[in-house]
């Protein structure tokens, strides 16, 4: 099923940041979201993931089909890598975690406490979590932060494999992942402020 976003408007801290945004994300496709810092990429992804309501517009085909990965990975430092992954696998309805360990080369770290991992290793664990969710649409916010070149390659491979299985991905990133992906530049959708004297129920 396609993720279709139409005429979306979103706000951050009560101020509209993007409006009139629309796109469709077909199965097997990846879409890279680009735009300068602070334009509202994170807000856009959180809105699509259902964490906050949009100001206006529709998001179709997102319900219960999105795996979201934000700036923090939701990793518990006192649990081991395996325990962390097993937990998320159980929450999303048990699938094996071996594939996820393979994809990000985590086997050697499997019994380490997550608190002892480096930032890049933690990130790999966070991304491995996506593979155990079994959700078809990945919504990823700056997924390659603190990854080295090799790990970025692994991530790109994982995304390619996911797309190959009919999944799709919406990725906000500044680097080139080497993916066959369309680009969505959100710059032109920057919200135009209403005239200041238009003093309506929202104070905006």
């Amino acid at each position: 099923m396609t993720l279709i976003v139409t005429d979306l408007a979103i706000a951050r801290g009560g101020v509209p940041v993007l409006e009139g945004l629309g796109f469709a994300l077909e199965p097997g496709q990846a879409l890279v979201v680009r735009g300068p810092n602070g334009i509202g990429k994170t807000t856009l992804l959180r809105t699509i993931a259902g964490l906050q309501p949009p100001l206006a517009g529709q998001i179709a085909g997102a319900e219960d089909r999105i795996a979201y990965a934000g700036h923090s990975d939701g990793i518990k430092p006192t649990l081991t890598v395996t325990e962390n992954l097993n937990f998320w696998a159980a929450v999303f309805g048990a699938r094996g975690i071996l594939g996820a360990l393979d994809a990000y080369d985590l086997h050697e770290l499997a019994d380490r406490h997550a608190g002892n991992l480096s930032a890049g290793q933690k990130r790999r664990l966070g991304l491995a979590r996506l593979l155990v969710t079994g959700r078809p649409i990945w919504v990823l916010d700056e997924p390659t932060v603190s990854l080295d070149k090799e790990a970025v390659g692994k991530f790109a491979d994982a995304v390619r494999a996911h797309l190959g299985q009919g999944g799709s991905a919406l990725i906000a990133t500044h680097i080139d992942l080497g993916l066959e992906a369309a680009t969505l530049d959100v710059g032109p959708f920057r919200a135009v402020p209403k005239p200041v004297d238009d003093f309506d129920g929202d104070f905006l």
Binding site: G13, G14, V15, V17, P193, V196, F199, F203, L204
Partner: peptide, 15 residues
């Protein structure tokens, strides 16, 4: 006060 807040937020947002 809310109105002032909203205006200040707009200004910070570069509007």
């Amino acid at each position: 006060a809310r109105r002032i807040r909203a205006l200040l937020a707009r200004e910070r947002a570069g509007a």
